[in-house]
């Protein structure tokens, strides 16, 4: 099928087998390798991207279903020379080791902070109606869809907290 995907602000024309997931379209057809395949079944979060600003598992959705959507991958968040605040914080806090789950963690955290800003509660929120607080427990719960077998969880939470606090102060 011939489709157009908007990725990181740029349109890409593609001829794709309808079976192609967004993940495989990115990796195999566009050389956007930052989005990782860890399980291909929505069980690890390594493939997390943002679609219209929301984090999703790109392995569990078909590319042909996303014409007209704004897809943001890790490559769209920053470059080695110009890292996003979260990317820089992950480096500073060593929020990774092997690096394979990392783009997914960072895309997920990017979307997650917007969810918190929008006031969404989580499983660990005491009060469903109160604004969520920026506790370790809140961040850990909200980031639990991203497995890290190197187990940098403690440092991931520290990196996200630093960025979220800095942003809150800026507001």
């Amino acid at each position: 099928m011939h489709i157009t995907l908007s990725i990181n602000g740029k349109d890409h024309e593609l001829d794709l087998d309808p079976r192609t997931s967004v993940l495989d379209a990115l990796r195999d057809h566009l050389d956007l390798i930052g989005t990782k395949k860890g399980c291909d079944h929505g069980q690890c979060g390594a493939c997390t991207v943002l679609v219209n600003g929301r984090r999703i598992n790109s392995c569990l959705t078909l590319a042909v279903m996303h014409e007209g959507d704004a897809i943001t991958t890790i490559e769209g968040l920053g470059t080695p020379e110009a890292l996003s605040p979260l990317q820089a914080a992950f480096v500073a806090h060593d929020g990774f080791q092997c690096g394979y789950c990392t783009p997914g963690q960072i895309c997920s955290a990017t979307g997650m902070l917007e969810e918190m800003r929008a006031g969404w509660p989580s499983h660990v929120s005491e009060d469903l109606l109160a604004a969520p607080d920026l506790s370790d427990a809140e961040i850990s719960e909200r980031m639990s869809g991203n497995l890290c077998r190197c187990s940098a969880y403690t440092n991931i939470v520290a990196a996200i907290t630093e960025v979220a606090e800095a942003r809150d102060e800026a507001v």
Binding site: I74, G78, T79, P80, V91, A92, G99, P103
Partner: peptide, 12 residues
């Protein structure tokens, strides 16, 4: 900091 860190966090 990990010297390859910027590559890993940027997906490159």
């Amino acid at each position: 900091d990990r010297v390859e860190g910027p590559l890993k966090v940027s997906g490159t």
